[in-house]
């Protein structure tokens, strides 16, 4: 049984002008110990998806349909007090602006200890302290910096501390939403290495959300490409990147500058993302797609299986 199974999940935000369909009919499953990356541009619904998995949607956001099953338990419609026992203990999250997640008036080590205490009150002070020490060692923060306050940390160290906090209760799944966006490349590289090591060591599943293809390609086993609230291509990373089939995936890859090979002119994607308050009836990419036909405009595309580990949501990708 998969650790996490999401089926036909749709999420809407109530706005003054109508319902903004941030996520529409998303399905995927995640095995224990694997990592899944969601790539997409701003507004594609990837952050909303992460928040929904944590049960942390903002007040005007609502799951319209679909199910989220975690270890066989349905999370959609779960009462908040039950959700609270799952959140952090079993599913932890590293947020986009994680450096702001630390409370400036408490020592970093105390904050991590607090997180453990809250969820496992039965532990003794010593047990918690040894665990906190272990966590800091794990994420690579020197022992003598544990008792510092957050403002004494650099951006990278704060991010490490936040990852230590997410690991504090030994969760089965970590959702990382742009965890390295604010960091410099060298620090980012170190954090990504750390993440990969941790995952192999403990068999934690990771959902990695990013706008940066290269990072997701570096960390994740499986990739979901998101566009305008839908997953448009999904599969093992090797297959998705070696033989991308969806026009959007291809366009995205063609717009990305690389560090070697011949320099070919980058091809921007023309046009703008569709309005998700009243999305187009057919394929959501059709008006920017070079190969769009008549059916693309009128009919919703269905999944095309390219290989057992690779599928795409497209009329003309078979």
């Amino acid at each position: 049984m998969a650790l996490l199974e999401v089926d036909n999940l749709s999420i809407g935000y109530q706005t003054r002008n109508g319902t903004f369909q941030a996520v529409d009919g998303v399905s995927f499953s995640l095995e224990s110990g694997r990592s899944l990356g969601f790539v997409g541009e701003s507004g594609c619904g990837k952050t909303t998806l992460g928040l929904a998995l944590m049960g942390l949607l903002p007040p005007n956001g609502r799951i319209r349909q679909g199910s989220i099953r975690f270890e066989g338990e349905e999370l959609v419609g779960l009462p908040e007090d039950r959700m609270r026992t799952i959140r952090w203990r079993k599913i932890a999250m590293v947020f986009q602006a994680a450096m702001n997640a630390l409370n400036p008036v408490h020592r970093v080590a105390d904050q991590v200890a607090e997180a453990i205490f809250t969820h496992e009150p039965a532990l003794s002070r010593e047990e918690v302290n040894t665990r906190v020490e272990g966590l800091f060692q794990l994420v690579g923060v020197p022992k003598d910096r544990m008792r510092d306050y957050p403002h004494q940390y650099s951006g990278g160290m704060k991010q490490r501390a936040v990852i230590a906090m997410a690991l504090a209760c030994r969760p089965r799944l970590i959702i990382a939403d742009e965890p390295t966006t604010a960091l410099d490349v060298i620090v980012q590289d170190q954090i990504l290495e750390e993440t990969k090591n941790l995952q192999q060591q403990f068999g934690i599943s990771i959902i990695f959300i990013s706008h940066d293809i290269s990072i997701v390609a570096d960390v994740c086993h499986d990739i979901g490409i998101m566009y305008a609230g839908q997953i448009v291509e999904y599969g093992a990373r090797e297959e998705v990147f070696e033989t991308p089939v969806h026009p959007y995936t291809r366009a995205l890859l063609a717009s990305y500058p690389t560090l070697n090979g011949t320099i070919s002119r980058l091809k921007p994607i023309p046009g703008e993302t569709p309005n998700l308050i009243s999305p187009p009836p057919g394929c959501r990419f059709c008006d920017r797609c070079p190969g769009a036909g008549k059916t693309c405009v009128t009919a919703r595309p269905s999944w095309v299986e390219i290989s057992p580990r690779h599928k795409a949501l497209c009329h003309s990708c078979s």
């Binding site: 490349v185 060298i186 170190q190 990504l192 290269s214 570096d218 560090l259």
Partner: peptide, 12 residues
């Protein structure tokens, strides 16, 4: 050199 090392190996 360190900067180049740190960039994810993508498209390579």
């Amino acid at each position: 050199q360190a900067l180049l090392d740190a960039l994810p190996r993508f498209g390579q």
